[in-house]
Design a protein around this nucleic acid. Structure first.
Length: 427
RNA sequence: GCGGACGUCGCAUAGCCUGGUAUCGCGCCGGAUUUGAAAUCCGGUGGUAUUUACCGCGGGAGUUCAAAUCUCUCCGUCCGCGCCA
């Protein structure tokens, strides 16, 4: 959510951003109009309250003195104002609620370096890392590999939970655990605190960190308590500071989190989504930074650097892309994706997403830091370190051997008892 | 799950019984003093606004002319009991 001061003082900035995104200005105009109406109602109501307070000032004395005539006169005066105040108050509340509902749907202001484009075709390459592996055989897709090696059981998962759930088995499951440990150690060694968050959140906190439409298409709602399972640990790890005023000396707060992530993936179907590429539940190691506004762009680059060095160390070939205006979504002001090379399909596909959300989440969550002039919103940043299901796909496809087994990246071998090659499962 | 205590500005705390202007301290910010620092002194430190006003005492509702204060309810914390990986 954008600061209301942006609409009052710098509406031209929001308008320019909407032009960049190809959006109409209607919502901006609505917010500005409703804000003016709300302020008028609020001011009028405040003036009446003031009148009432002034009138009521003598009421205690009259009551104590037993002066019933004065008491009755003041009470009549106060009663007359009360109904007016109530009507104005209701009007003001509804104007403010409507204003903020629209304001919630208005996207963040994009950074100047975000390229213009209509969809993911407009994303631009930032950098290329590693090189395409050479195979003296026809490389197989990860779906072939998991089936041939019996590393993943999709049919039985579908039987007990539904499609897009999976059992992870044998050496591939061991490598998944190794990836978690390795990634956590890698990021924690750079001064990030390891945190394991709750995997369910209430609606109020969740609205602070995500697009409202996600409640219908992305999140599982758990009854009877009405909690939502998290779609990423970014959500609890950012919302953790909701309603807080942070001392500037505490900033930046750097976190590496790990959690299962749950996504309904409504409407997702297609050849590219087979196997474990797009699933309802996966594990993700996430980087989070809560920072002073002046530092967030430097930290955005730091998060990307962490990703690049982590994925380089795994020996994976990938490119970094700068996400364009049309592919950005509501919350982020700038986003880099890492896209790994999948040799069988000859495509680069998203494995990491690295965002600076500036003050957008912080405004909704009322996360502030103390300044001399008053409290002001912090900036929030998040970046995948490793989403293990997709990391497994990239490693399997790039490290596959002619017989279908898979070479374990060097840095992971010590995390799984010096295992060098993933062996098939026998059931 | 049962019983009890409690929730007050960043932290800590008074006010609650007996309804009538949000208290003291710490921390933080600014200023004075100082070569600099510490110490000391002064001022400021919840939100909103058409800037001196209005709203705020965990959330919501109720009683009342008036609620931090009384009642109900929900949420949370702590203690004891029960259950439990």
């Amino acid at each position: 959510m954008l600061d209301i001061r942006m609409f009052r003082e710098h509406a031209d900035v929001i308008r320019a951003d909407h032009d960049k995104r190809g959006l109409s200005h209607d919502s901006i105009d609505d917010v500005i109009r409703l804000d003016e109406e709300w302020r008028k109602s609020q001011y009028d109501a405040d003036q009446l309250r003031r009148k009432r307070n002034e009138a009521a000032r003598g009421i205690a004395a009259a009551k104590k003195a037993g002066d019933d005539a004065t008491f009755a006169q003041i009470k009549a005066e106060v009663d007359a104002i009360a109904s007016e105040i109530e009507a104005l108050g209701i009007q003001a509340d509804s104007q403010q609620a409507e204003r903020d509902l629209i304001r919630m749907s208005i996207p963040n202001i994009l950074h100047a370096s975000v390229p213009k484009g209509e969809d993911d075709g407009g994303n631009t390459q930032h950098s290329m890392h590693g090189s395409k592996p050479n195979f003296d055989f026809e490389p197989r897709t990860h779906n072939d590999l998991i089936e041939a090696n019996k590393w993943v059981d999709l049919p039985r998962a579908a039987k007990i939970a539904g499609s897009r759930f999976f059992f992870l088995k044998g050496d591939l499951a061991r490598m998944e655990l190794a990836l978690q440990q390795y990634a956590v150690d890698f990021i924690a060694s750079r001064g990030y605190t390891f945190v394991q968050p709750p995997v369910m959140m209430n609606r109020q906190a969740y609205e602070g960190v995500t697009d409202l439409e996600d409640f219908e298409s992305v999140m599982y709602n758990v009854q009877p308590d009405g909690l939502y399972t998290i779609a990423t640990s970014e959500h609890p790890l950012t919302a953790m500071f909701m309603d807080e005023v942070i001392e500037p000396s505490q900033l930046p707060i750097k976190i590496v989190g790990v959690s299962p992530c749950f996504r309904r993936e409504v409407g997702a179907h297609g050849q590219g989504d087979k196997g474990i590429w797009r699933v309802h539940q996966f594990t993700k190691i996430e980087q989070i930074i809560i920072s002073h506004p002046d530092e967030s762009w430097d930290f955005h680059e730091e998060l990307l650097t962490n990703c690049v060095e982590l994925w380089d160390s795994l020996g994976i070939h990938y490119e970094v892309v700068n996400i364009c205006t049309g592919d950005m979504g509501t919350v982020a002001a700038k986003k880099y994706d890492l896209e790994a090379w999948l040799p069988a399909r000859e495509e680069y596909k998203e494995i990491v997403s690295c965002s600076n959300c500036t003050d957008y989440q912080a405004n909704r969550l009322r996360m502030r830091y103390r300044t001399a002039e008053g409290n002001s919103a912090v900036h929030t940043l998040n970046s995948t370190a490793v989403a293990t299901s997709r990391a497994l796909v990239a490693i399997m496809e790039q490290n596959q051997l002619a017989d279908g087994r898979v070479r374990v990246p060097d840095v992971l071998q010590s995390y799984m008892g010096d295992t060098e090659t993933l062996e098939p499962c026998n059931w």
